[in-house]
Write a protein that binds this DNA or RNA. Structure first.
Lengths: 155, 155
DNA sequence: ATATTTGCAAAGAGTTTGCATCATA
DNA sequence: TATGATGCAAACTCTTTGCAAATAT
């Protein structure tokens, strides 16, 4: 799906969600959603805040955090804690659940998907009678970059 | 291995590490290590700080954080970010790498181990030419507790 | 009309840092 | 005795909160 059409689709999904929850359809919420769906990769709350200003759409940090919460709740974005204390977000509509490879040296984040994660999930679910709704799998190490593999810093 | 003997063993490992890195063998470092190896489960920096005071061994927060860093570096403990912004730690000597099941309702953390995680790791390592040193796999959902499964709060 | 959402700034939680003092090597 | 470690408090970062003003319904 082209980026344009995807943006229309997620705006529609947000509209439906806000209607259903009887929340208000403010311009801020749609502008933030639009910004997020034009971004690639992971971003933090502050980067989003700066990006909105650069676009000449001024929103407060409070609104950024409030909106991220709304978008998380309707599953249009995902939040990750890759370590450290900085939450990173990414758009999630039209992306299949994926996992991450994180380089301890250059901090590059790569994505992969392995169907066996789901198999493990199902087995665990049955064994512990746990209703699993989500997962995160991160591998930490050194990426293919020669410079990274040579240094001996760790996570 | 009995807890007593395990504590002696990890103290010895810490001694060797400090010698090798030419760091000082301060009483604080050993007392904190001892406290950690008498604990069960996960703890945060503040809980450790309180526990040390209750034991009548006064250390500052700065020393707690400094020591946690040292213990992470010599792999006697592990740090987890299960979501939110609170780092949790756990002792790691004599425990095989394990993964976590986290209840979104009661926040209970359970542990499991599935050998297929390693298989995925090896495949990813080969495919991306990534040298993986560590991983974290968390499943989020509702635990077997009936009260938890009924409520519809999410992560 | 009215209740939610916003913006701002202040508060809060967790962690890190600067510096004088202490103590290990 | 000299350098690394500690304690304390202040600083810092990220996030949340309180409240008055704005605005969606």
């Amino acid at each position: 799906m082209a980026t344009e059409r995807k943006i229309d689709r997620v705006k529609q999904l947000l509209t439906e969600y806000l209607d259903q929850k009887e929340l208000r359809k403010t311009p801020e919420r749609f502008a933030i959603l639009e910004e997020i769906y034009q971004k690639e990769g992971h971003f933090d709350a502050d980067a989003l805040y700066i990006a909105m200003r650069n676009r000449n759409f001024r929103v407060s940090k409070a609104t950024i955090y409030n909106t991220l919460e709304v978008l998380l709740d309707c599953q249009l974005i995902k939040r990750h804690q890759f370590g450290e204390n900085l939450a990173l977000y990414e758009k999630s509509y039209g992306f299949k659940q994926h996992d991450h490879l994180i380089c301890a040296d250059c901090n590059k984040i790569m994505e992969f998907c392995d169907p066996r994660v789901h198999i493990i999930q199902q087995m665990i679910e049955g064994f512990y009678n746990f209703k699993i709704t989500d997962h995160s799998l991160n591998f930490y190490g050194k990426c293919m970059n020669k410079g990274c593999q040579e240094k001996d810093n760790v996570r």
